[in-house]
């Protein structure tokens, strides 16, 4: 017995999640681009169009619920659908972080640049690649690629700490920089959260592919402090 209809539904679900992933990844990219090139209009547009992401999120959740209710999925199908709901939530949060970045950009634009930005674009590039690879891993059912994503999370964390330390020196030297420095620290924090969401997605990909729960550093033995 082939389940053509069910297979098609699962493929639709995968495609919709990919659309969602592409959408939020692009928004992160545009938010950082708006920061680097001081584009107020671009930042505004990210904020007002967040609804697209939210609508897609609800649509995907509905689809998952319907499949759970009508198809009683088991084994890999069950793991796929329940994980899709979690991935969906992580993607939506990534979209929210793009909005947060855009809001900080609007705070920064009226003022002269505090410093040339080096670490933030690096961090953004890694975080975006993490989202992309997590989703590629999802499409190809590739746990090895997902594990690669997990490893890169530490790089992003280190960059965030570095940004914080550097901006702290600016704030101590001149309180007039505090507003701009804080906005940049927040952006660093937003990018770090985006990488965390990508990590969650990668963990779900491993769960779908191998039925192993690798959250909370279960694979390297125990919780990270």
């Amino acid at each position: 017995m082939e389940r053509h209809h069910f297979e098609a539904e699962l493929q639709n679900l995968r495609n919709q999640l990919l659309t969602m992933g592409g959408l939020v990844e692009e928004r992160v990219h545009r938010a950082v681009h708006a920061l680097m090139h001081r584009k107020e209009e671009d930042a505004q547009r990210i904020i007002v169009t967040d609804k697209e992401v939210n609508d897609l999120q609800m649509d995907i959740d509905n689809r998952c619920l319907r499949l759970l209710a009508t198809q009683t999925p088991l084994a890999v199908d069950l793991r796929l659908i329940t994980s899709a709901m979690k991935i969906n939530a992580d993607l939506e949060r990534i979209g929210d972080q793009a909005v947060n970045i855009a809001e900080s950009v609007l705070v920064l634009i009226p003022h002269p640049p505090l410093k040339p930005l080096v670490d933030i674009p690096r961090m953004a590039a890694i975080a975006e690649k993490m989202i992309r690879d997590a989703l590629d891993g999802f499409v190809r059912n590739d746990a090895a690629l997902a594990r690669e994503v997990l490893r890169r999370d530490d790089e992003v964390d280190a960059l965030k700490d570095q940004i914080f330390r550097e901006l702290l020196t600016y704030m101590m030297a001149d309180p007039g920089t505090i507003q701009r420095a804080l906005a940049l620290i927040l952006i660093g924090r937003n990018l770090e959260r985006i990488a965390d969401h990508a990590t969650n997605i990668a963990e779900d990909v491993i769960f779908i592919a191998e039925a192993k729960d690798v959250r909370h550093h279960a694979e390297s033995g125990g919780q990270k402090p």
């Binding site: 017995m1 082939e2 389940r3 069910f6 999925p73 088991l74 084994a75 890999v76 199908d77 069950l78 793991r79 039925a211």
Partner: peptide, 19 residues
């Protein structure tokens, strides 16, 4: 067995891909 079967045959059977 119903969330993470070890054998491919089991997986295919309980997900309705044959049987």
């Amino acid at each position: 067995m119903f969330t993470a079967p070890k054998d491919k045959l089991t997986e295919d059977y309980i997900t309705g891909r044959f049987g």
